[in-house]
Design a binder for these strands. Structure first.
Lengths: 314, 314
DNA sequence: TCACAGATGAAACATATTTTCGATCCTGAC
DNA sequence: GTCAGGATCGAAAATATGTTTCATCTGTGA
């Protein structure tokens, strides 16, 4: 377009700045259409209305397509675009795409409902993602930084770390243990309650036991924690119920948040997300405090895994 | 080429999914760039980064302009657009305009600084939560619903389900298996690659094998999936690399998103979040389709656990 | 070092947009 | 009624833009 002017300038014409009275608008396009409508010719009005009525659809059309759809010609479409303040149809189209995107992103609050049996998969995905995001926000907001700090300090200096979790929480427990192992700590996750208790007996002052239970009332997790507590270990509870029985034997309590649940959305989902966030915070905190040993350890474990991958493709 | 490989592995596969199911995304473009970046050539990466970094600016450029700005050629720009899932540059440009509009209209601009060694814990919590939220949004936006639907259908009617995952992904694999078991499916997670292969041999048509690997190149996971594939099972890959080797043996590919990573924030974190979301979607989808048997099963497993909790307090 | 596969850009080619220009349609005067 | 003058409009030419081809280049493994 710049080029157009340049080339066209076959005649002297000094440096006259083009009129350009209206800068291209972002989204107030419908308004513009309404203001301009009276000064438009019939065909142009048809184009303008079509465009204002279905930005998304029109953004997908070429000049020719839009001309056909409105029963006019390409020239008219371009003229309309000019009248609306754009240098040409191309730019109108771009603005249209923007408008469509805005409309689409604005029209997404309908996912707060519960997941039901006949929801299409697209809704399931949106709702799940939304819920988990909500859970993360809640958890992060409710985390007690003082408790977290204390828990991190205990872990960072621990001689040995035991983690207890059953059912869905056992995966979280394993995750924590795996991560701590990777930065050189001696950590173990116990899913079997008997072994957990057996091992808890070994713990003493300076060791750390972590119990992960959403309900705060899971016997299989409370028992080993109590044993560890009684043997002098520092105990940490990660639970959704800061008043649950598990907290009786916990030096530090980290509260995970609870989201609304339903038949199709069992507790495991959002509580797991919440627990994992807490675990990650613990891990990063510990890694920071033991950075000198953690960094090489992380590197080493990465290197060790490399050969388990097929050679690069590309 | 994906399709080629699948076919080459030679076995009568009835209805293949349409070759180009990837629909152009509206706004989850930065995410797409990140997932695809590793499989891009240098010049293409330059283009992708430029585009992701300044959507508004790039939307104003023509192919030639963008080629100049990135120091590449028009051909490369078009190739990049194609790789990102658009039919051509024109459509990428349109998407860019949409993205720019969304960003401009107050949508949260990415303010993610990296986590560093001396961040206070409060920052760590906030950054982690923010990142995971971002990951969820990206994953949900990039999930291919057609593939998801197909995967769900396969799982819902499966005689038996095997899930493969190693390292951090093994936890996700276990999670999926646990969940499916709870709604009455016969599912098993294999962390040991030998046992996984041994068991994969048992699979046949009507069975389903799921491989979970972020890198898409984890041998221990690819091998059992290939065995399952060769034995006629329906295979599903949950991976962050839609072009990884694992996809050669996958009937359905579910792409997890990749977030920026750093020393203190190992891959495991956001990829795990992403994988779990996908897993949950699969689970809910299956539960919906098998509702009549799933609902009582869920209830039964809940009841069975009740006595493992201490009697209600308060 | 060589051979090869893949990456890259210049230029040919195809498509989309803009402009030109003549046909048509309206309006109002006679 | 009809005719002049001007506004409106679209077909098609002219131009810009996007896409494809193909030869060259670059890096990699034997």
């Amino acid at each position: 377009m710049k080029e157009n002017f340049a080339r066209r300038a076959g005649r002297p014409r000094p440096v006259a700045v083009p009129p350009r009275p209206a800068p291209p608008e972002p989204a107030a396009l419908a308004a513009k259409v309404r203001t301009m409508a009276p000064s438009m010719t019939r065909s142009m009005q048809r184009v303008a209305e079509t465009v204002a009525g279905d930005p998304a659809g029109c953004a997908a059309l070429t000049v020719t397509g839009l001309a056909e759809r409105t029963g006019t010609s390409e020239a008219t479409v371009v003229r309309t675009a000019r009248l609306l303040g754009y240098p040409g149809y191309r730019d109108l189209r771009l603005a249209l795409a923007g408008l469509a995107a805005q409309q689409a992103s604005g029209a997404a609050p309908a996912v707060t409902a519960d997941i039901s049996v006949d929801d299409p998969l697209s809704d399931v995905v949106a709702k799940l993602a939304h819920d988990e995001r909500q859970t993360l926000t809640d958890t992060a907001g409710a985390l007690d930084l003082v408790q977290l700090e204390a828990a991190v300090s205990a872990l960072a200096t621990a001689r040995r770390v035991d983690v207890y979790g059953t059912g869905a929480s056992s995966l979280v427990a394993q995750d924590l243990a795996q991560k701590l192992l990777r930065i050189g700590l001696i950590a173990h996750a116990h899913a079997d309650p008997h072994l957990a208790v057996t091992n808890a007996v070994q713990l003493r002052t300076g060791d750390v036991a972590v119990a992960i239970t959403h309900s705060g009332r899971t016997v299989d997790v409370i028992e080993p924690l109590q044993v560890a507590f009684d043997h002098g270990a520092t105990t940490i509870a990660v639970t959704g119920r800061p008043d649950g029985e598990v907290t009786h034997y916990a030096d530090h309590i980290l509260t995970t948040s609870t989201a609304r649940e339903s038949e199709l959305r069992p507790a495991a989902m959002s509580s797991r997300t919440s627990q994992l966030l807490v675990i990650d915070c613990l891990f990063i905190g510990v890694a920071q405090r033991t950075y000198d040993s953690a960094a090489p350890a992380l590197h080493a474990s990465y290197e060790a895994l490399a050969h388990r991958h097929t050679p690069r493709e590309r």
